[in-house]
């Protein structure tokens, strides 16, 4: 066995390696166009590649999409939560602002009436029956509330305390049929009795006015102080209509109450006149 025989395979391999290396360096020098094998292969493979790549892109896109979707969903949820939190804060703010405005009016009212000592109260429940009109407030005998004390808002008289417990009290509204208050026309000083009527939701009646009393729609009605329960001069409402009693001996006025009975949230209870006496 000669030399050739002995090293043939190594030489073949070396030649192949050299050829390939040469080819590589030749092919890649200044490569601006596809070379023939590339093109031939390309003709065969390109469509398949294209298809497979399309599928891959699709799959990758889908997978990435799913991942992205999950991220987006997370983000979406986070943003929603954030938004809800903001919404809550916003409504809280609006609520606080409204409450602040209402309390401010009560404070102003209190300053406008230095002659009375008052206690602020919150409405915690309303009358559950359709025939009566009353509210429950969150102050009671422990805060110094007593039966018959007048209850007001910045708009006007609301009613009087009907019953008292330790930390709450029931207030009979002017609307209730059981309520009756000494009232008078502010301008003409004609006195009468202001009563509520079962079934009426916002109007009162000023009863027992003399037949010749001069009363016009729009006249303001205030408490007369007669009867001793309510101090004189609290606003009750304004006349919207004057009618004759059935037998014509007297007339009565339909009065639109100044207080907004259906949106009562905070009220003031007149505890005493500032000089120490009962509120009269």
């Amino acid at each position: 066995m000669g030399w050739w025989e002995r090293y043939r395979r190594f030489l073949q391999l070396s030649v192949a390696v050299i050829l390939i290396i040469t080819a590589i360096s030749f092919i890649n020098r200044g490569k601006e166009h596809y070379i023939l094998p590339e093109r031939l292969l390309g003709i065969v493979l390109s469509p398949v590649q294209g298809a497979v790549q399309g599928i891959s892109n699709y799959l990758t896109g889908t997978i990435e999409g799913i991942v992205e979707l999950r991220n987006l969903r997370d983000e979406n949820r986070r943003l929603r939560e954030e938004l809800e939190k903001r919404d809550y804060m916003y409504s809280l703010l609006a609520e606080l602002r409204a409450e602040n405005a209402r309390l401010l009016k009560l404070v102003n009212l209190r300053e406008m009436m230095p002659e009375f000592e008052t206690i602020a109260a919150r409405v915690i429940a309303r009358e559950p029956s359709n025939w009566y009109n009353a509210i429950t407030i969150n102050v009671g005998s422990q805060q110094g509330i007593e039966v018959d004390m007048p209850v007001i808002t910045h708009r006007g008289l609301v009613g009087r305390v009907m019953s008292v417990d330790g930390n709450r009290a029931q207030v009979l509204l002017l609307l209730d049929q059981r309520s009756s208050v000494g009232g008078m026309i502010q301008k003409s000083r004609e006195p009468g009795i202001v009563k509520g009527f079962a079934g009426e939701k916002e109007n009162l009646r000023l009863l027992y006015l003399p037949r010749d009393a001069k009363i016009q729609a729009g006249d303001r009605v205030i408490t007369s102080g007669l009867g001793g329960v309510f101090p004189k001069g609290l606003i009750i409402g304004s006349v919207i209509e004057v009618k004759a009693e059935e037998y014509g001996l007297s007339q009565y006025a339909v009065v639109r109450a100044a207080a907004d009975f259906h949106h009562l949230e905070e009220v003031l209870v007149i505890v005493a006149a500032a000089d120490g006496g009962e509120g009269e």
Binding site: A125, E127, P128, S129, Y132, A134, S163, L172
Partner: peptide, 8 residues
Amino acid sequence: GLDLISSG
């Protein structure tokens, strides 16, 4: 119960 919470 209703009587107790009502003012009537």
